[in-house]
Design a protein around this nucleic acid. Structure first.
Length: 593
DNA sequence: GATTTCACGTA
DNA sequence: CGTACGTGAAATCC
């Protein structure tokens, strides 16, 4: 029988009695108006909600919070401004270990228990042929006799603290198994004094999921008037009704159509019609993508007009008034949903256009009064990552300076642009172009790095999974090696890229997690990014954007550099690889160089 | 109505 | 024939 605790203070006492100290894994889940907690193989139902329990227990004991996923459990914590310095996200670590993008508990559990994830039972499933034996047993047990989770537990909010306690106990069980699996995956090259990289990665991937929730809550400061003015420059003034919107659209189209013979007939938004029109003008193109039309820009006035129209059309549709209205709150913050990792190599993703904001619009991203942005981006991160993950000593030596490509060019006896193209071509699996000679030079100069890439490519071609340096499994699609050559080649390029891009994403997230921890000083309320607080407001693959009070700009810049040094010392320990960040303080995002 | 294709923005 | 993502409009498929 689960013990019931009355209030968060009682939870502190119970956990203290169970021997919980700083860093001990303690699982938490929500159930009804209360919560469930689990530690050291025991679990308790608590009458207080998770936000209160995490706040009180956190300040008293500083455990490592364990949850099925931040998305399900930590949202109310973030909303309440509760600081969580360290956590373990079972779903995030599941994705690290097994690949994919699922965070559904039923899937995570099935894979962990060696059950077929395809056969996970679903809520409300009415299957006359179902195996009723498997579903009998104690409805108070989240696990069915056949080993799968009960769908009503897995898919729906739990109704009582007792259920939450059982749920937390399962999360703790999985966390223990995951930690063990990760700890056994050690790299002999790493110094034995530190936790294995895969464990460090599990921590930072978990932190990234929490950061994703915080980014969604905090939002990116936007000067709405400036944004509207930029949009007006492309799409015209904000239309008052449907008729005005149509008129504005037609006026934009007319600029291009007037330059065309029979322009009235052409729908500019229909690629087939545009292609036919281009053919009539004498341009035979396989498609109408702008990079393909760009060379002909000067050949006919309509082409220049069309390409300009496309830019405006992009702003008008994707980043127009509707976008502002949907995603920018009355507080002038642009908010989207964030994920800590995508389904492929593990980069962060964001919706609401946060990751693909046109450069023009960046001038509307403006710090609030009394605040500035501190922007930091990793320099030449992918070749430096390649040097670290492949253990290539020659390439590691090339990371000593601020520029990696100059020493590579010297080594290859070619010019810097050629060296850069060759290195990028090697990492991305480029097959066209004229990087051939330089690529052969790379093979001679950096054999370990090139072998590492080739090995990933071969695995990909054969349909085998690859693993990133931090231990993320990257599955291949298709079945086995018997696929069309084009598929094998695509998998090879993908795998070659994934081991670099994925490892870079892991380094980036560890850096971001370290910066995040440094911002809070591991204590005190975060306050959901409110005024006066320092907060990460954007993560962009190799770039961090922080919004901070003006007076703390210099301290924050120092923090970003220090955090990178500390991250690199752990992540790339023993490799001799240097990582560098460019840090600047800006009133608006577009002021970056 | 849901899915696919084309296009294009960012890294 | 470099990869990844999210998005919107139109075409296409039920």
């Amino acid at each position: 029988m689960t013990h019931r605790l009355d209030g968060a203070e009682a939870a502190v006492g119970a956990l203290l009695g169970a021997g919980v100290t700083r860093g001990t894994p303690v699982a938490v889940a929500a159930g009804g108006a209360g919560s469930g907690i689990a530690a050291g193989g025991r679990c308790w139902a608590v009458t207080a909600p998770p936000a209160e329990v995490v706040r009180r227990v956190g300040s008293a004991l500083s455990p490592r919070w364990v949850w099925w996923s931040a998305r399900r459990t930590a949202r109310p914590l973030v909303a309440a401004g509760v600081t969580v310095p360290a956590c373990w996200d079972v779903a995030a670590v599941h994705r690290l270990l097994h690949g994919g993008s699922s965070d559904a508990p039923a899937q995570v559990w099935a894979v962990a228990r060696g059950l077929d994830p395809q056969r996970v039972p679903r809520s409300g499933q009415l299957d006359l042929l179902r195996d009723t034996d498997a579903e009998e047993g104690d409805a108070g047990d989240p696990v069915r006799p056949d080993g799968y989770l009960r769908p009503d537990w897995a898919d729906e909010p739990l109704r009582t603290p007792e259920q939450a306690a059982a749920w937390a106990a399962l999360a703790l069980e999985l966390q223990g198994e995951q930690a063990e699996a990760l700890a056994s995956a050690t790299d002999p090259r790493r110094p034995p004094a530190q936790p294995p990289l895969a464990v460090l990665t599990a921590w930072s991937e978990s932190a990234a999921e929490l950061l994703a929730l915080e980014l969604a809550a905090t939002g990116l400061p936007v000067d709405v008037a400036a944004a509207a003015a930029l949009i007006a420059g492309h799409a015209g003034p904000r239309p008052v009704d449907e008729a005005a919107a149509l008129a504005s659209r037609q006026a934009r189209d007319a600029v291009v159509r007037d330059l065309l013979p029979d322009g009235e007939q052409v729908d500019l938004r229909n690629p087939a019609q545009v292609r036919a029109m281009l053919a009539r003008l004498g341009f035979d193109v396989p498609d109408t993508r702008s990079w393909r039309l760009e060379p002909f820009r000067g050949a006919h006035p309509a082409l220049d007009a069309l390409l300009t129209w496309r830019r405006s059309e992009r702003i008008a549709t994707t980043y127009g008034y509707g976008w502002l209205d949907r995603h920018v709150g009355p507080d002038g913050r642009l908010r989207g949903e964030w994920r800590g990792c995508d389904g492929a190599a593990g980069r962060m993703t964001a919706s609401a256009g946060l990751h693909n904001l046109p450069a023009d619009l960046r001038s509307a991203v403006v710090a609030e009064p009394g605040h500035v942005f501190v922007r930091a981006d990793l320099g030449q991160v992918e070749p430096r990552v390649l040097a670290a993950v492949s253990g290539d000593e020659g390439l590691a030596r090339a990371t000593a300076g601020a520029d990696l490509y100059s020493p590579v060019a010297e080594q290859l006896r070619c010019d810097r642009p050629s060296a850069k193209v060759a290195v990028l071509a090697a990492m991305y699996g480029q097959t066209s172009g004229t990087a051939g000679e330089a690529l052969r030079g790379l093979d001679r100069a950096y054999p370990s790095a090139m072998a590492y890439l080739r090995s990933a490519e071969e695995r990909g071609r054969a349909g085998k999974d690859v693993r990133t340096y931090g231990g993320r499994r990257v599955p291949m699609w298709g079945v086995g090696a018997a696929v069309e050559p084009a598929v094998a080649a695509a998998r090879g390029r993908f795998a070659r890229n994934a081991v670099v891009q994925g490892a870079a994403a892991e380094l980036f997230k560890m850096w971001a997690a370290t910066v995040r921890a440094g911002l809070t000083g591991l204590t005190g309320a975060r306050g959901a990014g409110g005024a006066g607080q320092r907060a990460i407001v954007l993560c962009l693959h190799d770039e961090l954007l922080l919004h901070v009070p003006e007076v703390s700009a210099e301290d924050t810049a120092t923090l970003l550099h220090d955090a990178l040094d500390r991250t690199a010392a752990r992540w790339a320990a023993g490799s001799g690889v240097r990582f560098v960040a460019d840090v600047s303080v800006l009133p608006r995002w577009s002021d970056a160089k």
